[in-house]
Structure formats: C-alpha cells, structure tokens
Design a protein around this nucleic acid. Structure first.
Lengths: 247, 247
DNA sequence: ACCTGAACACCGTTCAAGT
DNA sequence: ACCTGAACACCGTTCAAGT
C-alpha cells in the first residue's frame, strides 16, 4: 500500500499474504458486522483486497468456506471452567456454555442457521470442535447411572434444545424491548373470544421471548425430567413408573 | 393450450386464471418436489405458465410470498383429536401434532428454516394459524395449577424445542439409514483416547438421530420436569425444592 | 387491475491465462 | 501454487408499457 501506481480503486493485497485463516477471520468479521444477507464471495474478496477467485484457491466453494468458519469458531471454543457439584448442575453449566457459544456472536448464529437450511449435511470434517463438551456431557449422564441409550438420547435432546433455542434467539434480538412490545401487540390483537388465554397472558408470553432466562427455564425442565428417576423409561406411559434403572 | 400460434415454448396461461391461492399451492408443490434451493420466482412463474412479474401483482416480494405460504399451511392445520386424559398426556399429543405439522411436508420444514434465517421477523400477519394449539396448551398448563409466568415460559419452551427438533429432522432425512451410518462412522473416527464415550456410544448416538422417537424422548423429559412439583420454581437451585405451588 | 418483456444490479462458479 | 479478469448461467426486483 506504499505504491500509488496501482490502477485499481483499492490497494491490492500483495501476493502470498493471503491464507485460509485470514480469509476465515475476515469472513467472520464481515458476518458479525454486516450480516449474512450482505455477505458474498465478491464482498469478502473486496474486503480482503483480492480478486474474487483468489478465495477459490483456499476453498472449493462458499459452502466449504462456511463449514471451515464454523469449525474454526467451534474448535476455539473454551468451555466454562468446571465447577464440580452434582451432575445435573455440571450439565447445566455445560449447556449454558454451548448456548453462549451459539448466541455470543451474530456470525456463529448465522452460520448455524445456514447449516440447518442446507439440503444435505455436507461432508463436514470430523465432527468439528466443541466435541469435548459432548464427551463431558455423556460422562456426566453415564456417571449418574443413566443407561447407554438413554444417555445418548438425553445428550442429543439437550443439544437439540440448545440449538433450537439459539436459532430462535437469533430471530428475536435487535432492539429487544421494542421487538417484544410488537410481539405482545400482535398477540393482543387476536380475538379475546377465541383465544382468551393467549390475550390474557400476552405480557408473559412476550417476556418469555427474552432469550437467556427462557433458555435456562426450558433447560431446567429437561434436567428436572432427567433427575426424576425412571422418567426416561416411563416415557409415554400414563403415570409415573417405578424408579428401576437398568444399568 | 388449443392454439398453436403461440410463439413461446410453453402454453401461456390465459388471463384472469391466476390467483394468490393458485400461486401459493404451486409454490408449496414446487418446494415439496424440488426443494428450496431449486425454487425461484422465475421457476415458479414458469411452472404457472406466466411471466415472472405476474407474481408481483399478488405478492410484493418473495419473502411475502413465503410468509403467505407458511400462513396458508399453518392456517389449514387440523390438530389431532383431543383424547382427554391427564393434562400432561394431552400436552404430549398437542406437541406431537405440531411436530407432525412441521415435519410432515418438506415444504413446511423449508419455510420454517427460511423464516428462522431471516434477519428481521418480517411483519407477518397476526400470528398465523396453529394458534388454537397454543391456546390449548396454555389451557392445559394453567389447568394443572401452573402460574401465569411459568405457564407462558413452559409453553414457549415446548414450542421452541419442537421447532428445534423439526429443523434438525430436516437435516437428517434423505436415506435415513445410510445417513446415520455415515454419522456413526464420523464419530468412530474420533480419537478413542480423547473421546472414549463418544466413540463407545457412537451406535446409540447415531440411532438418536432418528427423528420422531428422539423428539418424543426429549418431549417426555420436559413433561416429566413439568410434573415434578416445584421444578419450575426451584430452577437453578442445588437440590430438589419443596413442592410448594404459588397458584 | 392484471400481466408483459427488457433491463438493472447483483449472485456463485468455470475457464483460460498470467506470475 | 497462487492469483487474475472475462464470461456463463443464474438471481430478485424496478420500470415503462401493453390489455
């Protein structure tokens, strides 16, 4: 950027300064700052000061670039320090950490949503990072005496709920209060005759749109369900079942 | 289509045969048959045998068309017949019905995912259909003696979990068995030293990718949590709380 | 009002070429 | 290997015009 002989409008980045990491970090910054809708390979290249096709030296497609960006964020994830205490409490901390990871940066949320929109799961590399947290969760569940299949299902349910809550949180953000007020107004505009409870509980329902407290509420319901001995064995029965444990 | 004097390759639909409903039904069929990635305003117009811009007489934008398509499906939703029985069982049926609605047709899942990707929630009409189910759920929760705020939060958590599970189900489908086998292989390729439980439980984790059974498992955990008296009041405490109910 | 075709300002990606 | 510019086959939407 010292020479002014360049004919292009913006300084060209000199050769061999590009790298996969630089591309990914710039992509994440762009997603954070301007959002997914404003993102394009052309815009990313422009930001980097290179030709669009330079990106294709490092990534075969936009999808592959997105997968790599997600892997990069997840791979660098540092879970919250383990506090000890009962298994369900530790499980809670682990899930809250994941939720923070998913909702902490706009870019991560957008990559998560994009991944969920994809037709085929895309040959993403071996399960990415954040795997240590999965292992930790499984250890806590098995340590609590929960059987193999039930532990796998419980872990999947917790991740499923966490991702779902994070995706919803992405829709709600912006000017939180303003957004919730509009949501409440929409509920209150419904027929009070047909939907008396929705209209009556509109303030509470609107308040429940706030993300982190609401996420913790549902998380605690799942954890309480897990603590109820036999709740995962009596699934679908009419009444509470004997607290027998198979393992 | 009786005259062959048309110069265009496909028969033009005569005037005044187009309507918002016809457009929406064709759009849904296209999404079911070819998927979101293959959908475009141009492709939809082609399918209808009209010029692309004819669509803009009925919908201001693609986003508005998608919102209307979603409202149409949700509005026509017929919840499963009410069976009676304890409140938690009825709640279960209601949630399973919603899950079926979301996952029953590919188009619905794709519209749901697209909506979750949107930057701003879009001025969608008054809360769409399926509202009756929300009202029903709130009635069951309140009838069980659960307080106003807790009922609102519980209802939100149930819907949140249902949407999240449905979105994940969309990623997993295709050739179910084949997909799961690949998932299992990915898990087993991880280091058995660093992630012993994941590798050990790979078959169970892969099996948990199956959608409906897994959805029901997590749903039952949430419902069990709700049945645990005081579980929604003791949220975050270290141990089980007294079963006091404020309402 | 309903519908058209051309045009605008974009996309992601292929390809042949340059260093 | 790394990077370029032109080109291809698409998008959603605006606009002036036709019936």
């Amino acid at each position: 950027m010292s020479e002014q002989s360049d004919t292009g409008r913006r300084p060209r980045t000199p050769r061999n300064t590009l790298s996969a990491d630089l591309i990914l970090d710039t992509a994440l910054r762009l997603l954070d700052e301007r959002g997914l809708d404003a993102f394009s390979m052309r815009a990313l290249a422009e930001e980097l000061g290179v030709g669009t096709m330079a990106l294709y030296t490092y990534f075969r497609s936009k999808e592959e670039l997105f997968c790599a960006a997600r892997d990069r964020v997840f791979g660098r994830y540092a879970p919250p320090p383990r506090t000890g205490g009962p298994w369900h409490r530790q499980l809670r901390e682990a899930c809250l950490g994941l939720y923070q990871l998913f909702t902490g940066r706009p870019s991560v949320l957008q990559l998560l949503a994009e991944q969920h929109r994809a037709e085929r799961p895309a040959e993403q590399g071996p399960a990415v990072g954040a795997v240590a947290t999965m292992e930790h969760m499984l250890g806590l569940l098995r340590g609590a005496g929960i059987g193999r299949e039930e532990a796998a299902r419980a872990q999947t349910a917790l991740v499923q709920y966490t991702v779902g809550a994070a995706l919803r949180a992405g829709r709600t953000r912006c000017t939180d209060a303003e957004q919730r007020r509009r949501f409440q107004a929409r509920l209150e505009s419904l027929s009070a005759e047909d939907f008396p409870l929705i209209v009556d509980l509109a303030p509470e329902l609107a308040a429940a749109q706030e993300s982190t407290t609401q996420y913790a509420f549902g998380l605690d319901l799942i954890l309480a369900g897990l603590r109820t001995a036999g709740s995962w064995e009596a699934a679908g029965r009419d009444d509470g079942a004997p607290p027998a444990q198979s393992d």
